[in-house]
Structures are given as structure tokens and as C-alpha cells.
Design a protein around this nucleic acid. Structure first.
Lengths: 349, 349
DNA sequence: ACGCTTAGTCGAAACGCTTCGACTGCATCT
DNA sequence: AGATGCAGTCGAAGCGTTTCGACTAAGCGT
């Protein structure tokens, strides 16, 4: 591989001139610029990223901390990743993938202190997330996909799960449903402070209360078997249930089976709306799920862009705390309440 | 951040001695080693990855070329990625993610010639894959997840789709099925030379012929709607069909719906076996799919390990061309042929 | 005609490491 | 006793860039 020195020699200029020509750091006469670029071309010169990084103290490498979620690595997560990588490359950065678990602060500290990365995008943010302290302590730029309880001075982008929950409920109510349950993630995940689950749950409770409806909730780990059991439990307690909102897509196949085993049909006898699932997942189920569908690719893109703006010390060209709506995509799993025409508005406490 | 020079000064040795102590490149007396490590500790010294990389001509960074598949980015793919990243880190490497498309050789050339990466793991390998020539021309170490038609001198790991297809067929035959169809990916993907689809198809044809059965095949793009249509077509041509083998998981929901619309039940009236889907996907469907389930995490790990062995010029501690079986995991979508006891072995041509 | 700015260029010093060659003792071999 | 070898250490020359200070020549206002 040829170096800048080779180019300089061939173009008959000094090494630093080549650098200035390449980066536009200082003015260069049109004529020498031509000569230099010609020389680069004949030599097939490519700047050496590592050397550049070392000298400029900017590696143009960022990391995506993509911890395997407690609920298991799910099919929804991939969209972030490729979108983030593409965005990074478009901006002249490279994206490293770190996928050790959230609480492995020691690994995180080691990797960040090697001077390799200019910044980190952190996913799977919890309400209290120690990684934030770590980054601040080290003085490393970072952005978040997700957000903690205290968002002072943080740059983040997240799905607005509160909006998603409210919209799902309004939609179901508009279809005549009044007995609606919320199927959450497992209790331990809530207790660990996993934002989406906590916020969706709170928002569900609030919206139901505001609508004067009963708040039926159930924790559930992310397996079909648990989904099945959870559905039975919910129905035992609230036999009039006609609809379910869930943020736990991996439990849904169990719910569907439980419904089928009752000889009910979806959506004629029972409606399901899922929060936070990607289209790819929603369309694997039968019937395809109605979802409040997060803009995952957007999240990945914005997370990276926020980080890069921070690294480059730009004035942000947008808000630095973004909540993205997740549009409700209506598919086969939801419909009007059974017999809705005959019985609007009657619900017991 | 402190540097090796600081450590050297504090420990009262020369800079190079610190380097030798750190890397074990030359013998160092126990006493000075102690002093050096103590100094590192009090200074909180961390070696600077970029500087090390520049001096040693080894970045300890590898890239995973993870192109978005033609069939769309699917839920199955994520397992590779986090497994690859973790493996890399365990071996002291960092994993970059490149997710531009397979045929974007120009991007690939640019990124590989920056001197940033020590090697590349390439996914989504086609029967004729230009990336291989590119890597060989540049002289960059690489390994493949997947394999092309000509495997001379290549280091790769792949799922054995031929085994998977055969095993699926044997299994179905053992359940009494004799009219079995193969639901492929779309024709354009086959024509592009996408290995898994081509091999599974060929293997299906071969195994059916060997069993004296008819070879019913259909192309199908990766959507439920196409799956629905494809199933209808198949049944129009072969009305006695009782089972389906597919390598197209994203079309399956359509197939399930088509079956349900016929008032058939799975698996009582019709069996489905899917090749190449992860457990996460199989368990999203209802009934959960019987699959020949590739060991994706293993593939990711082995791909990275093959690459690292190559980079470090080690004698490979294993085969360098690996085909991994995908164990048949029997779930709810398959069962004995309807009325099998009364009618074994009769099948028309 | 004077100093002052500015465009255009050069040389050299970083950046933080690895690695080569050379040096000093001291133990070992013949 | 002399040669040989090895453990242990040092200094200096890279690795391929960026960037700082300095220099020259030309253009400008007064």
C-alpha cells in the first residue's frame, strides 16, 4: 500500500501539502491539488484509517452497545443494528458491535478506555442505568436508544410507549371493547426498571382509569407457555374480557392457542393489539398482529446521528431528546367487540 | 489518560521495557515486572488500541459483512451477529458491522483498503460470489458463513441444507406422508445463486426421487400473501398433498391461513416442516413450527474463529470447511399423515 | 515606498505504541 | 581462559497520519 509520502514524492510536494489537499485544512492552489490527486489516483492511494485516527485523536469509530435483553434476544431487535451501521458509514464512521450484557460495566469500561471509540450508542436503557454514570465519568460522548428516569443533559431517542399504549386503548374502545387486559413482561423485568414495560404499564393503567374502565394486568415471561397460562389466569379473574394489549410479543402465540382452545376466533371473539413489535414479527403470527409498531430503523439512525453530532460538537440540528410515535398498524388480530351493537357501554367495576 | 511513557517513568524503566512486560515479548525480571504493573495500576493505565494497532500492523478489528438479504432482513439473522461479536471480544478482537448490500463491491473495497480491519467474515454467500475474488486480490484474510460452488482454499462454515432437506423428508415419510411439496424462496433468489435455497431444492428433488416419490416444487417470495397463493397452486396441481417442506419461513403464515381456510387442521390434516428457521421464529407461529434448526450462534462463533486463526497464521485446530447439521426440532406443525394406517405406500405418478 | 495581510507551501514535531539492534553481566561449555 | 549464550534492559527508529510554526511571494491600503 502506498502512503502519503509516496504521493508527495510523485506529486513533487511536501507530505503536509498532501494532507492539506486531502482534508482541505489549508488552502492549496488548484494546480498542485490537481497534481496531488492525479498522483493519488495512479498510486491507488487510500488514507490509512488507523494512522489518521492516531494523529487526529478521532477514530471515527463508534460502538453500539447492544446487550442481549433479559427477555432473550428477540427477532425485533435486528432492525436497529443494520440501520445504525448504515447511518454510521454514511457519515464516515464505523460501527462496532458490543453485545455483552447490560450490567457488565467492567467490560464496558475496559473497551471504552482503549481509546478506540469516539462514542457509544447504548440500547436497552433502564430507568436507572449505570452505564450513563460510567460514560459521564470517563467523559465519553454517548447517546441512548431508550431513556432513563432522569434525562437531564442526556441525548436520546426512544419510542413513545405511553402514546402507543393510549392509542391502542382508544382504538380498542372505539371498537366497543370495554374489558381490556394488559399483558406485560415478567415481573423481574419491570423491577429491573426496563423502561418500555414500565411506561406502557403505567400508561395503560392511567388510560383505563381515565376511561372509567377496569385495569386488568398480568406479568408474563416471554414464552408461549407462560402466555397460555397468563391468558387463562386473566380470564379466570375477568371473564368478560374481549381484548388484550400486550408488550410481550413472544408470549402471544400461547395466547392465541389459549383462545383457539376455547373455540374462540380472532378477531371475532377476541382482539389483540401488541406494542413494540416489528412488522416482521407481526406478520409471522396468524392472524397477523395489529401493532403499535415502533420505527426501529429510525431509532437506530437517530441514535447514531445524535451521537455523531455530539462528537463533532455541532449545534444539534434537531431536538436532542426525541420520542417517536409508533403508528398503529391494523392487521388481522383486532376487530369490533363481539355483539358490540347490542351492548355498548355496560361494564361492571 | 496516561501513556506507556508515564508508566515507564514511574517504574523507573525504559519505555520499551514496559512494552515487553505488557506483551511478554522479551523476558523481564520478576522484580521489574512487579514494579511496572504496580505503576500501571496506580496510573490506571490502559494501552491505547489505535497506537498499538498502528505500530504492530494488527488492528485486532474484524468486520462482519452482514448484507441485508434479498428476501428482506429477517428475524432469524440476529443470532449470528451477537454471537460473532461476543466471540471476537473473547479473543481480543473487535467486531465491526458492515451491512450494505452484497453487490456493493465498491464500498467493500474502500472499507477494506483503509487498513482498519485485519479480516472479514462474509455472510449471505452466493454460489458465485465476487467478494471472494476481491478479498483474494487485496490479500485480506476472510472467512465465510455460507459457501460458494468452488470452495478451493476457502475457509468457511455453513449449515448443511442438504442434510436438513433429507432429514425433513425422511421424517415426513416415516410419518406416512408420500405426497410432499417443497416451497422454495423466489425464483430470482435461486437464480442469483443463493446457496441454501439452491442446495435445499436440489437435495429435496434428489431425496424424493430416491424414495420413488414425486417432486412437487414451487417458488415463492417471502410474504404471507405469496405463501397463500403458492399453497393454492400446489394443491391445484397435486391435490393429494399432505405435507410441505419449506425454506421460506416468512411465507408460512400465508400457508397456515390457506390451510385453515380449507377447514383443515395442522398437523392432523397437513404437516409443515421448515428448514433454516431459528427457534425464536418457529415459536412465534401457531402451531409452533417443526424445523430443521440451524445452529446460528455456532455459525457466528465458528466464522469468527476461523477468521482469527487465519489472521494469526495458526495451524487450524479444526477443519476449515465445516458443514453443521441442523437438528430436527419437532414442534406442533407436523404429525402422522391423515388416515395413515389405512393407506400406506399408495401414491400415483 | 511601507508595513500588513493572505494564499500557498514546507519541515518537523507530535500521536502512543512495537520492535530491532545493541549492550551488560553472569552462567555455561570446551 | 576464552568463547558462547541467554536473561534483562535501553535507545532509537519506525507505523502513516495531522497539525503547528515559519517562510515566501504577492496583493493591498495609505
Amino acid at each position: 500500500m502506498s502512503t502519503m509520502a509516496d504521493v508527495a514524492k510523485l506529486a513533487n510536494v511536501s507530505l503536509s501539502t498532501v494532507s492539506y489537499a486531502l482534508n482541505g485544512t489549508r488552502p492549496i492552489s488548484e494546480e498542485t491539488r490537481q497534481r496531488i490527486f492525479a498522483a493519488m489516483k495512479t498510486l491507488g492511494y487510500r488514507p490509512h484509517a488507523l494512522a489518521r485516527a492516531l494523529a487526529s485523536k478521532r477514530s471515527h469509530i463508534i460502538a453500539l452497545h447492544f446487550p442481549t435483553p433479559e427477555r432473550g434476544v428477540g427477532p425485533t431487535e435486528i432492525e436497529f443494528v443494520s440501520s445504525a451501521s448504515n447511518t454510521a458509514i454514511q457519515h464516515g464512521y464505523q460501527l462496532l458491535l458490543w453485545s455483552f450484557e447490560v450490567h457488565d460495566l467492567e467490560s464496558l469500561r475496559q473497551l471504552t478506555q482503549q481509546g478506540l471509540v469516539d462514542g457509544v450508542v447504548a440500547m436497552e436503557v433502564h430507568l436507572h442505568d449505570d452505564r450513563i454514570n460510567l460514560f459521564q465519568e470517563i467523559g465519553l460522548p454517548f447517546s441512548l436508544i431508550g431513556h432513563p428516569a432522569d434525562t437531564t443533559d442526556l441525548w436520546y431517542v426512544d419510542t413513545d410507549f405511553e402514546q402507543a399504549a393510549c392509542e391502542a386503548i382508544s382504538y380498542l374502545i372505539s371498537l366497543g371493547h370495554t374489558q381490556i387486559a394488559f399483558l406485560n413482561q415478567s415481573q423481574s423485568i419491570i423491577e429491573a426498571g426496563y423502561g418500555p414495560a414500565v411506561r406502557a404499564q403505567a400508561s395503560f393503567a392511567w388510560a383505563m382509569q381515565k376511561a372509567g374502565l377496569e385495569n386488568a394486568q398480568r406479568f408474563c415471561s416471554a414464552t408461549p407457555a407462560e402466555g397460555y397460562a397468563a391468558f387463562d389466569d386473566l380470564l379466570a379473574e375477568w371473564p368478560e374480557l374481549t381484548a388484550l394489549v400486550s408488550i410481550n410479543d413472544r408470549a402471544i402465540p400461547g395466547v392465541i392457542q389459549a383462545i383457539t382452545d376455547r373455540h374462540w376466533r380472532i378477531p371475532d371473539d377476541f382482539s389483540i393489539v401488541v406494542l413494540g413489535s416489528s412488522a416482521a414479527v407481526a406478520e409471522l403470527m396468524f392472524p397477523a398482529l395489529t401493532t403499535a409498531q415502533p420505527l426501529n430503523a429510525e431509532l437506530g439512525r437517530l441514535g447514531v446521528e445524535l451521537l455523531i453530532q455530539q462528537i463533532e460538537g455541532q449545534e444539534p440540528n434537531q431536538e436532542t431528546q426525541l420520542l417517536l410515535r409508533s403508528p398503529l398498524v391494523i392487521r388481522g388480530s383486532s376487530g369490533p367487540r363481539r355483539g358490540v351493537l347490542a351492548s355498548t357501554g355496560e361494564h361492571s367495576v
